[in-house]
Every structure is written in structure tokens, then in C-alpha cells.
Design a protein around this nucleic acid. Structure first.
Lengths: 339, 339
DNA sequence: TTGAAAGCGATACCAT
DNA sequence: ATGGTATCGCTTTCAA
């Protein structure tokens, strides 16, 4: 093995032990508080550690303990504000626990996710946090035999696999309910990907809320999107071309709303004077769109904190006392009351 | 030591060797291609590995080789679209190299940065990528004695520390030059933090370009900001209250431009009909603001790829053939020609 | 080409 | 309370 190429000559427990006149075991015990060490030796060890500037070799600890003190985090995108919030939450939860996050992205592709997870497991992560994705629950359950898992965007409750969702259905009901409260009757909906659980829940919320208020659903007012801005833009163009009347658009997420808003702008249609727009997610930037976007807030940072804390507890065999964060409607300026 | 708690009984090189009827050394050699292995044994080993589903223990490899095959990445924010792009680039560059990124955030705070870096070094990262931040070049140079470093946002060129900047001065000149081309003479500037290198360069570019075109700089048209949306909003309000005339605003970054745009919107001032706005960065969302933002693009993803490739080469003692990505003006719809 | 054996640096068991 | 020693799983001399 190559010696450390840096300047300091790599001091080990044995070296510390030798200089302090004790055994390596004692040094280790002192370091980990595994057993009592006499005051006398404690001081000796402490001062030698100080003098030699000793730092335990994490790699050796890892091998010996069989743990890397690392949490694998599987996200779906490194550049999405949505996931970024959750990762920040995880990061915060992990601070001071001795665990560091190892982040990989699956890009919404089951095969890639599986591959990245194998990589994470090969690196001996002590736990796994999975943010959404396309893996089957069954796969995750299976994976959880090899490593404890906490997931977001799926309901799981096995010994070593726990997962929760936010109530997207409820959120969509709130959004549409609010629109109806404001006097809207002809409400368009731009959907998310049809294979996306949350997108489906939002669609269902839209439909049910309409029905609940005795408003007949109009097939032409529901147009397909994919959670990206471009699809919102396209959708509005189609909506406009269809000649259907509508006074409000519920967008399956904020990104879609941005695109929709731009399409409206291009046609000289004012928001909210002519048409109201409501989104879902509450990305940071939604506070600064023109007009600021009324939307359903997903507390992703809190979700991340929850997940981070949960995986640490699961690893420590503590009981998970999860309090699932709640969605809530944030009213800004993109919806106008009509009569 | 606890044995692996999962189902599979943890197969080692020795196990493979025993079953294949060879020595552990040979198995290792085969795995790493360190030396020639006879065809016969190669096959035997291969099939045993397959049958036993053997996976090398990375932790043991790490200890033995003294390397964690990990790259530490110090960012300043986990939720910034700006840094996220760079991290995605790094991630892409690292794919297939066997290195995984360990990401930490310094939150623009020198002490925190230093602390996080110590953490990274304690975890025996093989290299470090530093994204901006407030550390002194001297500190980085010193750190580079312990671990090779590649940095963005500073000019460095030591054996084990390389860093580059994008030409923010040039970018600002482009932006202001464009505004002047479009007939603007009274151009306001909302600055970035005064202790931020890039912000200063952009200010200098603004000033020099004005001067170059014989336009007298008006002190009241330069107002302080901090790269956040809220500061753009505030700045515009101050600008408006000052009673100064101006037909365009150059914002030190896109976030600031978002805030500025909202302030204008609130006052019923149209963009670009009444006032033109230009930003800096070209965040993803700038394509979908209303109107889409004209701005100076920072190719952060490419920067990230550059950095990722560079650190890998530096670790492998290869020569770094960096081609620093270029800024460029992207013209959209937030600037109008005036006469 | 191949094998035996010596570590890498820390931890933990077993004595004392 | 403390020390000796085996061990974690792999890589890599050194000999053959």
C-alpha cells in the first residue's frame, strides 16, 4: 500500500498507544467511551493525541465495524427545485449524526434506479432514502432485506422499509375547491404524467371536487401534460384552440403553471384578470412569478427532515415516530374572484 | 464484529478462492487485472464468483488501498438552481469513473466550509471540488497539501490545486453593450453582494461599458442587492422612489431580476414596453418568466463536467486539459429597443 | 503464473 | 481497568 502522500506521517492508534505508554486497546476504549479509562491514562492519551494530531482512520473503522456511516439517497433529478428541497432537509437531519449522504439520481428510470441502488449498496451504505421513482414496492421490499429503507412517495410499512406519501388528493381538492369558492365553474386541468401516482391523485381530486359541487366535468378541459414547463405551454395553446370556455386553469404542478402562464402571456391574456391559474408544489420561484402563483404547498424540506431522521432511527433500531407533514394551499395573486 | 445482518452469508475472496481451488491472491489479481491469470483458473474463478454471487467488500478495499474512491464536493447551497446545475455536471463527469460524489454545503460561510472540508478529508475523499465560497486562496492552497483540489470561482494553478473563473466582467460588458445597442442610455444596475468576486466583476463591466460608450455613470442608478429576489424587489422600489429616469435595469443575477420584475409588475410598469430588464446566470426558469428573460448564460453544467473531469485527472496524475466554458448573451424578450 | 503471508488501522474478546 | 491478540476482507510483496 502506498503511504499517505500528504505531509503528515499518518499516525495510528498504535503510535498513540506507544507514545502514551498504554495499549492500543485502551486508546480505542478512550476514543469510543467503550469502557472506563483511568484518569491518569486518559490524560496521557489525550495529550498525545493532541501532540501527534491524531485522527482515527475512518476507512479502518469502516472495515472493522462493517459500516460506512453513510446514507444513500436516491433522487430523480439533481437540478429539480422540488427534489433539492427534500435533499436539503435530509442533509439537515443528518447533521451531527455522523452520517453523510451519498446522493445518486435515477432520472425517473426504474433500471437506472436499481443500478444506482446496487452501487450504493456496494458502497455499504447503512441506509437508503428513496425519493419517488418508478421502482415497484415489491422491489423496494426485497431491497430492504439488504439495507434499511425509508421512502417518499409510496406507502410502506415493513420492519426495514418505511414510506409515506403526502395527500395529493386532498391538496387537489383544496385547490379546486378554492377556485370554485372564487366563483369559477369552467376549470381546466393540465395533468401530469399518467404513470405518476401523485399526478393521478391530483386528477382524481380535481374530478371529485367538481362532482361534489355539482359541476359537470368537461372532457375537453382536461389536457395532458408531463410536469414540465413546455407541456403547460402546449396545453394552454390546445385549450385555447379548442374554443372551450374556461376561467381558470389548475396545473398539476408549478412548472406546468409557469408554461401555462407564458402561453397566456403570449396571447395577451391576463392572469388573473382574464384567466386564473393555480399550481401545485410551491417551488421557491413561485413566490416571484408575475403574478405570484397561488398554489398547493408541498413541504419538501420538512419531508426531507422526516426522512433523514427516520432512516437514522431505523438504523439504530429505534421506533420511528413520524409525523407526516401536511400540504396546504398558499393563496397569492394568480387567482381572481369571478361572478 | 457483527456479521452482515442481511440474508446472504457474506462471501469473501478466500471463499471464492477455496471453492475455485486457487489462492486469494489469484482471485484478487483476476478481479483487478493486476497480473495475468491462466485461462483455466480464470474460468474457474469467474464461474465461482457467479455462483456465489461474490461482490468485493469496498470497505476492505478502501482500507487496503487507502482510498475511498470518493470525491468531496463543497457547494454553497443545496437548493440553488445555479449550484445544482454544476453538481449535475460533476455527477455526469464522475459516471463510470468509479468515483462517487460526497456533497456538503458551506452556506457561504468560511468557517462552515472549512469544517465541512475537514469532514470530507476525514472520510478520506480522494479529491475535492470546491464551488465558490469564501475561503481564501491561501487556505485552499494549504488544504491542497492534504488532498488534490479543483475549484470554481477562483484562479488557481498549483500542482495539486487548480481553479478557474468564468469571465463575469466580459459577460457584464456584453449585457450592458447590448442594452446600449438597443438604444438605452439610462441603465440602472442592481448589484450583488459587495464581497462577492463575480458581483464585483459585473459591476466593473457595467461601469466600464458605460464609460466606453461615453455615458456618464449616475450614482443613483446603482443600487445594492444581494443576489436574492427580495433584494431585486426592494432595489426597484428604491429606484422608482428616487425619481431617477431609466429605461433599463441590469440585474446582477437572474434571481434579482425576478424580484425586480415583480416590483415593476406591482407598479403596473410593463416589461419590456416601459422598462427593459436583463439578468445574469440564465437559470432554467428564466426561459419561462413573463416575459422570458434576456440574460447572460453561465454554462454551469459544463463547468461541472469540467471540474469533475479535472479532479479525476488530477488524482490520476494526468495533465489537465481544461477548456474553460464561455459565457454568452441569450436574447429573449425582456429587452426592448428604444430610440 | 501462482501461493503464502504480511499487513492496512481500528475494534473487541479474553484474560489478568 | 488494562493489555495481548485475533479479526475485518482485501491487496501486494516476496518466493517459488
Amino acid at each position: 500500500m502506498k503511504k499517505d502522500s500528504s505531509s503528515s506521517p499518518m499516525v495510528t492508534v498504535h503510535e498513540v498507544a506507544r507514545v502514551a505508554g498504554v495499549s492500543a486497546a485502551t486508546v480505542s476504549r478512550f476514543l469510543n467511551g467503550t469502557a472506563k479509562v483511568s484518569e491518569e491514562k486518559r490524560q496521557a492519551i489525550e495529550s498525545v493525541i493532541e501532540k501527534l494530531n491524531y485522527k482515527p482512520n475512518v476507512l479502518a473503522q469502516n472495515l472493522k465495524t462493517g459500516s460506512s456511516r453513510t446514507i444513500g439517497v436516491l433522487t430523480q433529478s439533481l437540478v429539480s427545485g422540488y427534489f433539492a428541497d427534500a435533499m436539503a432537509g435530509i442533509d439537515e437531519a443528518l447533521q451531527g449524526t455522523g452520517y453523510a449522504p451519498l446522493i445518486v439520481s435515477g432520472h425517473w428510470h426504474a433500471d437506472e434506479e436499481a443500478e444506482r441502488i446496487e452501487l450504493l449498496i456496494a458502497r455499504r451504505v447503512d441506509g437508503l432514502v428513496i425519493l419517488s421513482g418508478k421502482l415497484k414496492d415489491a422491489q423496494i421490499l426485497k431491497l430492504s432485506q439488504r439495507v434499511p429503507i425509508v421512502a417518499f412517495g409510496r406507502d410502506l410499512s415493513a420492519p426495514r422499509a418505511y414510506g409515506f406519501c403526502l395527500d395529493n388528493y386532498w391538496g387537489a381538492c383544496e385547490a379546486v375547491g378554492y377556485l370554485i369558492d372564487q366563483g369559477h365553474r369552467n376549470i381546466a386541468f393540465i395533468t401530469g404524467p399518467s404513470d405518476h401516482q401523485d399526478a393521478l391523485a391530483r386528477l382524481a381530486g380535481y374530478r371529485d371536487t367538481l362532482a361534489k359541487h355539482g359541476i359537470k366535468e368537461q372532457q375537453q378541459l382536461i389536457v395532458g401534460g408531463d410536469f414540465q414547463e413546455s407541456s403547460g405551454l402546449l396545453a394552454v395553446e390546445r385549450l385555447l384552440e379548442s374554443g372551450q370556455r374556461f376561467s381558470a386553469i389548475f396545473c398539476a404542478n408549478d412548472l406546468t403553471a409557469y408554461g401555462a402562464r407564458l402561453a397566456l402571456y403570449r396571447r395577451g391574456i391576463r392572469v388573473p384578470e382574464d384567466i386564473s391559474v393555480i399550481g401545485f408544489d410551491d417551488l421557491h420561484s413561485s413566490m416571484y412569478t408575475t403574478p405570484p402563483l397561488t398554489t398547493v404547498r408541498q413541504p419538501l424540506f420538512d419531508v426531507g427532515k422526516c426522512l433523514g431522521r427516520a432512516i437514522v432511527k431505523m438504523i439504530g433500531h429505534e421506533t420511528l415516530d413520524i409525523e407526516v407533514p401536511q400540504l396546504n394551499l398558499v393563496v397569492r395573486e394568480s387567482v381572481k374572484r369571478v361572478d
